[in-house]
Design a protein around this nucleic acid. Structure first.
Lengths: 146, 146
DNA sequence: GATTTAAGTTGTAATGAGTTCAATATTGTA
DNA sequence: TACAATATTGAACTCATTACAACTTAAATC
């Protein structure tokens, strides 16, 4: 389940990021948990490995990862930023009932954007909201947001 | 520049929303300022017309507008929710240099989303980031984020 | 190996968008 | 006018994120 630490270390060095224990663990966690974890989920997920890990360190680490293009910020809904190590472009779907986030493949290049000629486009984000297959099956159920 | 108050009033009633002075002004402001204003921008923009207008009222009003489908939430970047009266689907581009947000037309229906069959899709959002035409022209300039 | 220097980490305190809530004001209706 | 229902207001609160200063670690030089 774990990613080779040396490989990750080299990856960080290649981007001019010093591979500290904390950074290696944080990046490894994001890669091996492709559920788009929040800062808080990273924090509690690494608690047994690094009991003194501070939230500030996680904020710092993900910021430099994002700047280096190793990790993507995913803002599906306001008030929860999530992180995603998939660098290939893909879309996100958030179910309004169960709150689960699904990835889906999408060919961004095919999106026809009128009026952006002469613009330098760095990132493209697509997110949908609605109700997922599983929740649709159980339609008679009570509404449990989030 | 103003929108006919009667038309707006009817529009609100049609959606079961009581057309109070505050709601009319807030909706009118969002419609006549298609710059995707934040709560704060709405607040200061309406200050001369409604000096006692409270932020809470704006939060309440935009929430019921969004629920009624009259207004769209635009979350380009975390920590700033913006509001948009354009209900037709379109994408948003945020310039990393000047911070300006551009609309662009996009045919959402054509976005090929693999793996979402049997999902009920309610909203589709597309946002790009990069550097706008104007800022590209002045490349030698200092970097002014936001 | 000891010393110096730079960089990274930590926890606390500050910030600021958004929410909650009780009091007040407004509106519609009899 | 009186009543009931709804809307508005502002202060207090919450909570994610940021700022910052003290501390720790790692690397570099002697």
């Amino acid at each position: 389940m774990d990613i080779d630490a040396n490989t990750l270390s080299e990856l960080l060095k290649k981007h001019g990021i010093k591979p500290s224990q904390q950074r290696l663990q944080i990046l490894s966690f994001i890669i091996s948990n492709p559920c788009h974890p929040t800062i808080d989920q990273i924090h509690s997920g690494l608690h047994h490995a690094l009991p003194t890990l501070s939230r500030t360190t996680i904020y710092n680490a993900v910021r430099i990862f994002v700047e280096a293009g190793l990790v993507q910020e995913v803002t599906i809904e306001n008030n929860e930023v999530r992180y995603d190590a998939r660098t290939e472009r893909h879309g996100h779907f958030k179910c309004k009932k169960c709150g689960k986030i699904y990835d889906f493949n999408i060919c961004m290049e095919n999106i026809p954007a009128e009026g952006l000629s002469d613009f330098q486009i760095d990132t493209k984000n697509v997110y949908f909201t609605g109700i997922c297959k599983d929740c649709l099956k159980n339609t008679s159920q009570e509404y449990r947001n989030k």
